[in-house]
């Protein structure tokens, strides 16, 4: 059974459509990256998945629950970290744990305490005394202690220095991720998460413009770096995009035969940033 099924999601803010027929599905044990520029509808999509934002149209099912109808049931099985510190600044850390223990039966306090013991975070301090990095560490400790089947991360490492960012993803992979658990993640720093994703979804102007697994991606897309002599031949094969680089001209192809492409230049798999530009650039 899918962890998440969303079809034709529509959300309008006045005249602007934040989501315009957005589709998404997540299977258990997958790490899905939702990639798109600012204003593409990423955050709105995440919020409607979590039942925080209401949709104007579309069908959505998360863990068998309609998020808009039963956010409470959903949040017992889902965890969420947002791009900014959203933990209440006036609360002591110990009180935050008490509170979550009181409202969420799937929260295990000891796990959270064990994770926090590895950090410099003290339970009797208030949240506002924490640095940005510690704030994310705390939120992560809470989330890891919730027995969640879906973890939603919205730009979780924004504003963190590189050390914390690395630790963050290590912890998510080592302490949270397992066979029956799934992660949905958005970030600007595509390069940072590229190697941990199993699936990728490109979102542009409220629609999903690409949705495939990283394995498929390697089969389906190829990047050829060619010298000036080969360029005309490659152009005839209708690349999605071409871009000048130091090594020559990089052309990105979809559905082309790699062996054939290899005759014209060096073939590689495009990274997500390159691919996004190629796919979305062609559409606008």
């Amino acid at each position: 059974m899918s962890v998440l099924q969303a079809r034709g999601l529509v959300k309008n803010y006045g005249d602007t459509a934040a989501l315009d027929g957005f589709d998404l599905s997540i299977e258990p044990g997958r790490i899905v990256g939702l990639i798109g520029p600012n204003g593409s509808g990423k955050t709105t999509a995440l919020k409607s998945i979590l039942g925080i934002s209401y949709l104007d149209a579309g069908e959505i099912d998360v863990l068998g629950i309609n998020p808009a109808h039963d956010r409470k049931a959903l949040m017992r099985r889902t965890a969420y970290i947002a791009d900014v510190g959203i933990l209440p600044r006036w609360m002591k850390i110990g009180h935050v744990l008490d509170f979550i223990e009181g409202v969420n039966p799937s929260f295990d306090r000891q796990t959270a305490l064990d994770t926090l013991a590895k950090t410099d975070i003290k339970l009797d301090k208030k949240v506002h005394t924490l640095s940005k990095g510690m704030n994310v560490q705390l939120h992560l400790a809470i989330v890891l202690a919730i027995n969640a089947e879906l973890l939603v991360l919205d730009e979780p490492t924004l504003g963190l220095d590189i050390l914390y960012r690395q630790q963050f993803y290590d912890a998510v992979l080592n302490d949270y991720f397992e066979e029956q658990r799934s992660i949905l993640i958005t970030t600007h720093e595509v390069r940072e998460i590229e190697h941990i994703l199993t699936d990728v979804v490109f979102i542009h102007r409220g629609r999903s413009v690409l949705n495939l697994s990283m394995d498929q991606l390697e089969v389906e897309f190829a990047k050829v770096t060619a010298g000036p002599d080969e360029l005309e031949v490659l152009r005839a094969l209708q690349p999605l995009s071409e871009r000048k680089s130091l090594q020559g001209t990089e052309c990105i192809f979809r559905g082309a035969d790699r062996a054939m492409l290899a005759q014209h230049g060096e073939v590689a798999t495009p990274n997500l940033a390159e691919l996004f530009v190629a796919v979305v650039g062609g559409q606008s």
Partner: peptide, 20 residues
């Protein structure tokens, strides 16, 4: 206030209904 400082996202990410 919690909408203003965005902690509403935290309060909504815990299993509590809006009525509660």
């Amino acid at each position: 206030d919690d909408r203003k400082d965005r902690t509403v996202l935290f309060w909504k990410s815990i299993p509590v209904t809006d009525t509660e």
